[in-house]
Design a protein around this nucleic acid. Structure first.
Lengths: 235, 235
DNA sequence: CAGTTCAGTAAACACTCGTTCGCTGAAAGT
DNA sequence: ACTTTCAGCGAACGAGTGTTTACTGAACTG
């Protein structure tokens, strides 16, 4: 498309933009406008007119881009998880336990800083908000969890784990990181020491979990936790 | 109060109620009505008129009970945490590791079942919604976390832990239980086997955490998995 | 250069919303 | 028996909502 040099706009290089460009620009204005309002209110409280106003278009023009506020919500979910996936790709570039944790937390901190709005949106709408959005977000997180589970399965120490246990541990790690992000978002980004404290806690929590995984019902019988189940008769 | 027989209404035993009774009744109708709508939408999306309608009163009468929808929200927070505290009281009635976890999860399941609406409200508004509500809820949860930390401090095996580490571990346990509750609320209450699966995962996650705590940077070199009398007369 | 496409417009529609007003009627106080 | 109190009512207000309509004009197409 852009390879055709004979188009008219070659002698109008900057003051007019192509139609597709313009459309994309106001679409992003809509998304950005919505995102910037989500700092302090739930998505469900945004009105179509308000978002249109923030984007500088009339309410009727909104319909050229989205059928619905819900559809705009889904677009925001997509954008947000695109950022999140990019983060996860960076986070996977480590190969030992300790390094992986330290590196993951650092990557997390950087990305939350750079994409605060998107993370805030995900964190907020994850539990509340429109049911459809909620389910979309939960699905994405479940996907991430299962990816982490298969990553874990590659560690030789966990070779013998059942897939159920792997999923359980992965879910715990993901939940911990989600909680850390939520905590991070509730700290003013202007207070780096407080942020660092939150990150330190998150990192120690992950280390604690990994320690527990090292002890989890020792497969070779070398460290099985209790020789006698305390409540063996129960149930 | 019902012991004073000399009041007027003694010969009108049931068709007329005292003014205070009536007021309380419609106040509760407002709270219940609001709660029942929160199943599938955020609190911020409830309108004063809608709640009044559900309670069977006119919008104007709403103001006899609450100044604001916000004020109604705070009342809901209070009610909800009253239930939660009651739950925590029950959950504390155990005294060994394994028993404590199993018991806590069982108590959690029962209370979530019995007070689903309240738990849903807390879980949903915890991350999203009106900032004031959010802060109120987060404050309550932080309180619960610190109470758990002092509980943990009483275990002899954790005597040597720093208060920072105790708080870190307590926060991890609370976050895990919160996540379990959220998961539980996203499963139809009509599907008990699915609920049981969620609870099992939560319980294993807590056990994993406790295992990790047993290994946590042994302070005096005595980090062997504590030879705690496994089934010692757990009440 | 004519013709088509289509992002964006203003206006009008039929709502719902929060809030205020003066009023009613039964319970509570005297 | 009287007056006072007050939970609840219907009506009205001004404002904001989602959505449809017919339109404009610049970017594209052939």
């Amino acid at each position: 498309m852009a390879t055709r040099p004979h188009t008219r706009r070659r002698h109008r290089p900057h003051d007019h933009e192509t139609r597709a460009e313009r459309k994309l620009r106001t679409r992003e204005a809509l998304l950005d406008g919505a995102l910037s309002m989500l700092d302090d209110r739930p998505f469900a409280s945004l009105s179509l007119r308000e978002v249109s106003r923030a984007a500088g278009i009339s309410p009727a023009a909104f319909y050229r881009h989205f059928q619905d506020m819900d559809e705009l919500g889904f677009a925001l979910v997509d954008e947000s998880f695109a950022r999140l996936r990019e983060m996860l790709r960076s986070a996977r570039e480590s190969d030992d336990y300790e390094g992986a944790i330290r590196n993951s937390v650092a990557v997390l901190a950087r990305h939350v800083h750079e994409n605060r709005g998107y993370f805030q949106f995900i964190a907020r709408e994850r539990g509340s908000g429109v049911p459809a959005l909620r389910r979309a977000i939960r699905g994405e997180i479940r996907l991430i969890t299962s990816e982490l589970a298969t990553d874990l399965a590659r560690f030789p120490e966990l070779r013998s784990w059942s897939s159920g246990d792997l999923g359980m541990a992965a879910a715990l790690m993901v939940a911990t990181m989600v909680a850390t992000v939520e905590e991070l978002l509730n700290v003013p980004s202007s207070d780096p020491p407080a942020e660092q404290r939150v990150l330190d806690v998150g990192e120690r929590q992950l280390r604690l979990i990994v320690l527990g995984m090292g002890q989890w019902r020792g497969p070779d019988g070398e460290l099985e936790p209790p020789p006698t189940r305390p409540g063996s008769a129960s149930r």
